[in-house]
Design a protein around this nucleic acid. Structure first.
Lengths: 225, 225
DNA sequence: TAGTGGTCTAGACCACGAA
DNA sequence: TCGTGGTCTAGACCACTAA
């Protein structure tokens, strides 16, 4: 452990390609067996901090490109430097219909939280969001009061989504949506359906409708191998 | 290596949670040192095939949820069971403008391939795509004839994109787009801008405009840590 | 040729989980 | 208590890279 942390501090902030101390160098420096040093370095290699080059040495790796962390509306807006607000239109327990039940991997009729919000950022209406939560995993969710950030609230219960599948479509605003979103009917909107999982449990499914003039979705893909 | 492959075959197809042979069991079975066995198992753990549980044993891991592989139009349609076709509208070398140059991390005026296509699947018009390729990385790209699948062509040159950032927006179709896409002007369309990298090299940047009635985008997010 | 990482040996003691 | 994985020792030989 001590070797690993020593090397971690050594290379922290070093630019990619900088050589790390060689294994034998660390052996004599710490008076430790080579296998021990190797395991320490292996851990850093797995973390993506070091790269081994057989015959040449061990070097600081270039940081791996990441696919950005799964986030909800609040965090998404915060990343854009905006403060998210929301106006609850509906919040109640319901019996899951067949579609929601399948998405949440529960049975039709099981209890779900249905929460509908109009979401603003920087004071401007951005989207209309219908979210269904797996109430089995979140007993008494509504009783504890409505949070601002759903994902924060889920995180508090150890259920922050770590994986999601989204389907995204352009469409024309329906009349009721248009009124809430303060646009003309038939204006283009972006529809986003999400099914979010925390570990292996389906936690949340949602449908959001975004004003196209105020929202651009951004995703990073790949490099997950 | 032989231990690793032996265990890999043993557990292949086994359901998650199945115990793998213990380390000491493999030691006596192969007449090999325990460190050797551990390294073999470590490799499989990193691959996500095994999980260690200290004090309990080593078990077949549940397959990690993946974010789907980065793909282009051809592959995307193939996943939906459709054959992608394309009609080239324009294909030539150009000097990069400032926007494209920045996205491709080259200098303004550097040579880029500009390729504009109308893309169909199952015989139906789906989208209009403008792609710019980093010609510095792809000398003589156009001279070799136009491929059907851009990503396959890039893969042949060892430049298959492994990471991309996409921005997605809903919009109303412009007149010229509407005509090519065979819809009415102002119909909702989905706009997708992509900047795609192969390792650390910016290879491709594109803008696509999809008919909203014929295309739903699907993405999987997260679990990349 | 000297130095590097890759692989391997034949032991050892520890903390932890299950019975 | 017994078996498990986690960590460690003090060496060894190999293939590869660079000078």
């Amino acid at each position: 452990m001590v070797v690993r942390e020593h090397v971690r501090e050594l290379i922290q902030g070093a630019s990619p390609g900088t050589p790390a101390p060689s294994e034998r160098e660390l052996v004599s420096q710490f008076g430790v067996a080579r296998m021990t040093v190797r395991q320490a370095l292996d851990a850093l290699v797995v973390e993506g901090l070091l790269e081994r080059m057989p015959g040449r040495g061990t070097f600081v790796a270039r940081p791996r490109r990441r696919t950005c962390r799964l986030s909800g509306f609040t965090e998404d807006m915060r990343r854009r430097g905006l403060v998210a607000e929301s106006q609850t239109i509906l919040a109640r327990n319901e019996k899951a219909g067949p579609g929601v039940a399948r998405a949440l991997e529960i049975s039709t009729g099981d209890s779900v939280v249905h929460w509908k919000r109009l979401r603003r950022a920087g004071g401007l209406v951005i989207c209309l969001e219908d979210v269904y939560l797996n109430e089995v995993l979140l007993p008494g969710f509504l009783a504890r009061g409505l949070p601002t950030s759903l994902y924060d609230a889920l995180a508090d219960r150890g259920l922050r989504p770590t994986w999601a599948e989204d389907t995204i479509q352009a469409d024309a605003a329906a009349e009721d949506e248009a009124e809430l979103l303060e646009v003309e009917p038939l204006c283009p909107v972006l529809r986003l359906s999400r099914r979010a999982m925390s570990e292996d449990r389906a936690v949340q499914v949602s449908r959001s409708t975004f004003r196209s003039d105020r929202f651009t979705m951004y995703v990073q893909l790949g490099d997950a191998d």
